[in-house]
Simulated assay, not measured.
Amino acid sequence: MASCTAPLLALSLLVLWTSPALGGTNDAEDCCLSVTQRPIPGNIVRAFRYLLLKDGCRVPAVVFTTLRGHELCAPPDQPWVDRIIRRLHRISAKASLALPPPQPCLLQVPIQDSSP
Rank of each mutant, 00 (worst) to 15 (best):
G42L: 05
T36I: 07
L16Q: 05
A21I: 15
P102I: 14
L13H: 02
V109W: 12
T36P: 01
L67R: 07
H70N: 08
L97C: 05
R46N: 01
R49L: 07
P101Q: 15
C32S: 11
L33M: 06
L8C: 02
P102H: 07
V15G: 08
L88T: 03
L16A: 15
R46D: 01
H70Q: 11
A47Q: 07
W80M: 08
L8M: 04
S3H: 10
R46A: 02
V62Y: 00
D77A: 07
A61K: 00
R49W: 07
R38G: 06
A93R: 12
C105Y: 08
F64I: 03
E29S: 15
D82Y: 03
P20M: 10
I84Y: 00
V63M: 06
W80Y: 12
A28Y: 08
Y50S: 11
L51G: 01
L72W: 08
D27H: 14
R38Y: 10
P116F: 12
R68P: 02
R46W: 00
K54P: 04
C32A: 12
G24N: 13
V81K: 03
S12I: 13
L107T: 14
F48I: 04
M1S: 10
I85S: 06
S92I: 01
P7G: 02
P116Y: 10
L106G: 13
K54I: 15
F64V: 02
A6S: 06
C105P: 04
T18R: 06
I85R: 14
L99W: 04
L72H: 09
G69V: 11
L8Y: 00
A2M: 11
P76Y: 04
L72T: 09
A98P: 08
R49H: 14
P76M: 06
I111P: 06
A61C: 03
Q108H: 08
R83K: 04
P110Q: 10
D30M: 15
C57K: 02
R90D: 07
E71H: 09
L16K: 04
T65Y: 02
V63G: 00
V109Q: 15
G69Y: 11
I44Y: 00
P79H: 08
P60R: 02
A47T: 03
D82R: 06
D30A: 14
F64S: 01
E71V: 01
P102V: 15
S34E: 14
A6K: 05
S34P: 15
P75F: 11
C4S: 13
A2V: 10
T18G: 02
P102N: 13
P79C: 06
D30Y: 13
C57M: 05
T36M: 07
P75C: 11
I84G: 00
H89F: 10
W17C: 07
T36A: 11
G56V: 01
D113G: 07
T25Y: 03
E29M: 12
L97S: 05
P39D: 11
R90Q: 09
G23R: 13
A74F: 03
A6L: 10
S92Y: 04
L53K: 09
P60Y: 03
D113M: 10
L52E: 12
I111T: 11
R58T: 13
D113H: 08
L16Y: 06
D30V: 10
P110W: 09
G24M: 12
